[in-house]
């Protein structure tokens, strides 16, 4: 199967008070039809920026897409005129936002907010639209009678369901889920993830799932890309990343997870802080925190190398797939 979404060499900067923030630095990724790509990384690594860049809803100014291509079915979204992008947004590509508390307009009924996206992309009259919006509510497990209620009358988990209903209302081909469960408590997280998975399968939607939670990735994604300081450092199938983490940063991520089998073992957090995105290191961005860093790492930025088919890693020192424990 061919790649449905292809992002090539995307670079996004923010300019603020004369300083340039390098948020995304040459990111390339692919998503296949019906597959889910997990995008993992720390807060501020540029995950959300990538998603918003795909939809072209970054606030400009201060954000600017400097270069790159975003190919959806072979068409470059970055070259499309704004009028055509309006059709893509909410229609072909939809987004689920991080914080359901603020993602809904507090002054509009939830039904009307779903109706809005429905009527934008379909030729419904109001009556059919309202019926469809009610059906969408039912799909995400909210009784259609609550159509006329306002966001403040819903709990956090329910609001996220509304956001999901809105995103899926027009059967998008690609769903960008930006930390859809971060703002929710653990029991609701599981429900929402199940719901997203179920609906994704029902509608045959491709998805980019942004998260910093490896557990969420394990549950939902076929492919994983690990992002650090605006660059992808390792990517591959879920098995590649979970069973053979290779990049020192990926290994660090796994080592900072609690291990349920080994008792009494201390967590190993990754030492140091992510680099200042206004002043990225010249070489590998992870070098200052990396236990394997050499002189070369500090001078030159490593390229992505294919370790095994589909498993890529950007590191000078790690040339074959690692193993989970005892990996160097």
């Amino acid at each position: 199967m061919s790649d449905f979404l292809k992002v090539k060499d995307l670079e996004v900067i923010y300019t603020q008070a004369g300083r340039t923030v390098h948020a995304v630095n040459g990111v390339s990724l692919e998503v296949r039809k019906g597959h889910t790509l997990g995008l993992v990384g720390e807060t501020g690594a540029g995950k959300t920026t990538i998603a918003k860049a795909i939809l072209r809803i970054l606030p400009d100014p201060p954000a600017k897409i400097k270069r790159g291509e975003i190919l959806l079915d072979g068409e470059d979204l970055l070259k499309k005129p704004e009028s055509e992008m309006l059709q893509v947004r909410g229609g072909k590509i939809a987004m689920i936002f991080q914080d359901p508390m603020t993602a809904l307009n507090p002054l509009m009924t939830v039904g009307d907010q779903i109706l809005e996206v429905l009527t934008l992309h379909n030729d419904y009259d109001i009556k059919t639209g309202m019926k469809k919006a009610g059906e969408m509510l039912e799909t995400v497990g909210i009784p259609a009678e609550r159509y006329g209620e306002y966001p403040h009358q819903f709990s956090g988990g329910m609001k996220q369901r509304v956001v999901i209903a809105m995103a899926l209302a027009c059967n998008p081909e690609l769903l960008l889920a930006d930390e859809p469960t971060t703002a929710l408590d653990v029991t609701i997280q599981a429900q929402v993830l199940d719901l997203i998975n179920e609906l994704k399968e029902k509608f045959q939607t491709s998805m980019i799932l942004i998260t910093h939670d490896l557990g969420v990735i394990a549950q939902t994604c076929e492919n994983v890309a690990v992002i650090y300081a605006g660059s992808i450092v390792e990517s591959g199938t879920r098995e590649d990343i979970f069973d053979h983490p290779t990049h020192p940063y990926t290994i660090g991520l796994f080592e900072s997870l609690p291990n349920m089998t080994a008792e009494g073992e201390k967590l190993k957090p990754i030492a140091g802080m992510p680099p200042d995105p206004t002043d990225l290191p010249e070489g590998c961005a992870f070098a200052p925190r990396c236990p394997y860093a050499t002189e070369e790492c500090r001078r030159r930025k490593p390229e992505m190398k294919e370790l095994s088919p589909g498993h890529l890693c950007a590191c000078f020192n790690r040339n074959e797939p690692g193993t989970l424990k005892g990996g160097a």
């Binding site: 809803i57 947004r89 987004m95 603020t102 993602a103 809904l104 307009n105 507090p106």
Partner: peptide
């Protein structure tokens, strides 16, 4: 810069209507 305005944009709503409605 409110999140719900970004939501409205991600729905493909026109800028003028976003200003008026949201």
């Amino acid at each position: 810069r409110a999140d719900f305005v970004t939501t409205a944009r991600s729905k493909g709503q026109k800028e003028g209507i976003i200003v008026r409605k949201h």
